[in-house]
Simulated scan of single mutants.
Amino acid sequence: MILGGAILYNSQWAGDSVWMQFFAGGVLGLTMAHFVVDAHAWRLSMPVQREFVLKRLT
């Protein structure tokens, strides 16, 4: 992820625009946050998460 962020940060796509660099960093940050939250939400071995998911699926 760090390598991907460095590539996005230094790419010609982001250029010298502060807003494009901010956007690229924001997308990377949101992607990382998604995986952290998703890892905890899908721990179905824990009874609380399992009940939460099963209640919404039925």
Rank of each mutant, 00 (worst) to 15 (best):
G26Q: 07
A24K: 04
M1T: 04
V18P: 08
G29K: 02
H40P: 00
F23Q: 05
V18I: 13
V37D: 08
M46L: 13
D16P: 05
K55V: 05
F23S: 06
V53S: 10
G15N: 08
L30N: 04
L44Y: 10
M1H: 01
P47K: 05
R50Q: 12
M46Y: 04
V48T: 07
L28Y: 10
F35Q: 11
M46A: 12
M46T: 05
A6L: 15
G29T: 08
R50P: 02
L54K: 14
D16N: 15
V37P: 02
A33D: 08
L28F: 08
H34G: 03
R43D: 10
A33P: 00
M32I: 14
I2A: 06
S11D: 04
H34P: 00
G29N: 04
W42T: 15
V48H: 08
M1G: 03
D16I: 12
L28H: 10
L57H: 06
M46Q: 11
W42R: 15
I2K: 01
P47F: 00
F52D: 15
W13F: 11
A6G: 02
W19N: 10
M1C: 02
H34V: 07
V37E: 08
G29C: 05
G26C: 05
D16K: 14
D38M: 11
H40R: 15
Y9E: 10
F52M: 15
M46W: 07
L44G: 02
